[in-house]
Amino acid sequence: MQNEWLYIGLFLIVGVALPAAALVLAWLISPKKSNPIKDSTYECGMETVGESWVQFKAQYYIFGLVFLIFDVEMVFLFPWAVALGKLPLFAVVEGIIFILILVAGLAYIWRKDALEWV
């Protein structure tokens, strides 16, 4: 078991190292003749006006919150799904009740128009 995670760890290290090595190689062999115009921010050929790190719609945050809740729910369901084959029918019903409670929450925010992109 621990060997599996050791393998994954090695894989992660190689997975970072190979792309990084390619970037370093590209950096080594590429020409370096920079000038201010070349290095300017693109933005459709126009000069950038003001700070580029600007505020955004709060709607993105709402979807982030809804996603977080559902993500946690799905993580709960994975052990349930794995164990399902060995369990009696009432276990399935419990899982379905678990899902239905969350569907009720989804229906509530749907009715409240929180899922609309204003």
Binding site: I62, V66, I69, I101, G105, Y108
Partner: peptide, 11 residues
């Protein structure tokens, strides 16, 4: 599950 719904509605 109920708590998650409460969090969803509250948020």
């Amino acid at each position: 599950s109920v708590m998650l719904v409460a969090a969803l509605v509250g948020a």
